[in-house]
Design a protein around this nucleic acid. Structure first.
Length: 398
RNA sequence: GGGGAGGUGGCCGAGCGGUUGAAGGCGCUCGCCUGCUAAGCGAGUGUAGUGUGUUAAGCACUACCGAGGGUUCGAAUCCCUCCCUCUCCGCCA
């Protein structure tokens, strides 16, 4: 969520920066609601002060007649308060709903662009492109021939966009997860965590999947629990409503979890293979840092994720996402894409983002700043890496 | 799933309708004292919102004693609903 004070004080700047995302924001409406909200609060608080003072006096007054007179004087105050409170709550909710639906402000150094075609790719890195003396096969053909993935039986038991990893491929995934966790814990200083895979709606609001992207999530209506689309969701929310000791920052967490995604919006896209599926494993990196350090921490996060691609001998590149393609909560994002020679495309295996205080404000995650006061911290997250796509690249390459 | 206990400030723990944002203790911060440390003495020590200040300090007010409703002039205290923790029984990987 964006800071209402920043919007109030610099509405033009806010409008200009947010609209670099190719969206329209009605700043005037926000300002009007904000003004209205504050007026109502001021008004109702005055009456509350009056009531509090009056009630105190009643408590002190011993004479029954005098007492009753005071009570009579305050008749109707309660109703006024209730009415104004209700109005204030409504306006507040309306404003809040609007703010929850507005994405984060892009950083000043994010390339301006309309959509994914204007992302800025960095140089190709890692292992050199492989020379094949033949046409490399896409992984769905390879895996079927080698009996490493069983799509048919998966479809029988669980429908489309599901898969069964078999034998060496299942083993490879397990080994990769283990190794990635080891690298991030021992080489990069992360603490390994195993979070719940099903969470409250509130938790998803904190990281900004809700309220806007409910249609991409699996939801158990009976228990009102949601399956996580990424470990970012539970892990970032660990410290919700907390004030962390500034000395404990930065906090680094790494988690390997399944990720559940409905992929409704992508219906019909990438239906073959395991590139876009309803459930997949991902090793996720999450950082909680002081605001002044988040820009540097983003670059370090990118390096940490790249290290995995590098060590695996993959051919990869970095993509600086433009304003039009930036994720909802991100202020700046670098994607890591690995080359898959079989399906002949770049596969996104990681998306490393600085969320700045966007999630921290939603989830109320703070730290005790040097001046002794609580302040919002910054959160970052990135995959390190997403398993199925890494498997694709390795399979098609080797 | 059934029964019992309980959720109060950084922590422990009182309060059970009125000047209680909350006794007392611990912790922490600052000062005094002191070979050092400990002890002792004094003062201070929640979060957020609104208003007013130069978007500072400060000041005033409002809200917050698990969450949300209700009763009342007034609720941490009474009533209802929900959530969570502990515990006993049942079931179970």
């Amino acid at each position: 969520m964006n800071d209402i004070r920043m919007i109030r004080e610099n509405p033009e700047e806010f409008k200009q920066r947010i609209e670099a995302r190719q969206i329209e924001v009605d700043v005037d409406q926000i300002l009007a609601l904000d003004t209205q909200r504050r007026a109502l609060i001021t008004q109702v608080e005055e009456i509350k002060a009056e009531r509090n003072a009056g009630s105190k006096l009643v408590g002190k007054t011993k004479d029954p007649a005098e007492r009753q007179q005071l009570i009579d004087q305050m008749a109707g105050l309660g109703d006024k308060i209730t009415a104004l409170d209700t109005q204030a709550t409504e306006v507040d909710r309306e404003l809040n709903d609007i703010l929850l639906g507005i994405p984060n402000l892009p950083d000043a150094d994010v390339p301006i662009g309309k959509d994914e075609t204007e992302n800025v790719p960095g140089p190709e890195r890692g292992a050199p492109l492989r020379e094949f003396g033949f046409e490399p096969k896409p992984h769905w053909d390879l895996a079927e021939e080698l009996e490493l993935i069983d799509f048919e039986r998966a479809a029988k038991i669980a429908g489309s966009r599901t898969y069964i990893l078999r034998g060496d491929l299942a083993r490879l995934q397990r080994a990769l997860i283990d190794w990635m966790l080891d690298v991030h814990t021992s080489r990069h200083g992360y603490l390994e965590v195993q979070p719940p895979y099903q969470v409250f709606a509130e938790t998803l609001v904190g990281t900004s999947q809700l309220p806007k992207f409910a249609d991409t999530l699996f939801h158990d209506i009976e228990e009102d629990k949601w399956l996580i689309p990424t470990a970012e969701v539970p892990v970032t929310n660990f410290y919700r409503e907390e004030i962390l000791d500034g000395n404990t920052l930065p906090v680094y967490h790494v988690a390997a979890t399944p990720c559940f995604r409905r992929e409704k919006v992508s219906a019909g896209r990438d239906v073959r293979g395991i590139k876009r599926v309803f459930q997949f494993m991902k090793v996720e990196l999450v950082k909680f840092v002081k605001p002044e350090e988040s820009a540097d921490e983003l670059m370090r996060l990118v390096d940490e994720a790249c290290y995995i691609a590098e060590e695996l001998g993959l051919h990869y590149r970095l993509l600086d996402l433009c304003t039009g393609d930036l994720g909802f909560g991100a202020a700046h994002t670098y994607d890591i894409e690995v080359w898959a020679p079989g399906c002949q495309e770049w596969l996104e295996v990681s998306s490393c983002s600085n969320m700045r205080d966007f999630q921290a404000r939603r989830a109320n995650i703070r730290y005790r700043a040097d001046n002794g006061k609580p302040a919002l911290l910054h959160t970052l997250n990135g995959s390190g890496l997403a398993l199925p796509r890494v498997l694709i690249a390795i399979m098609e390459d080797h």
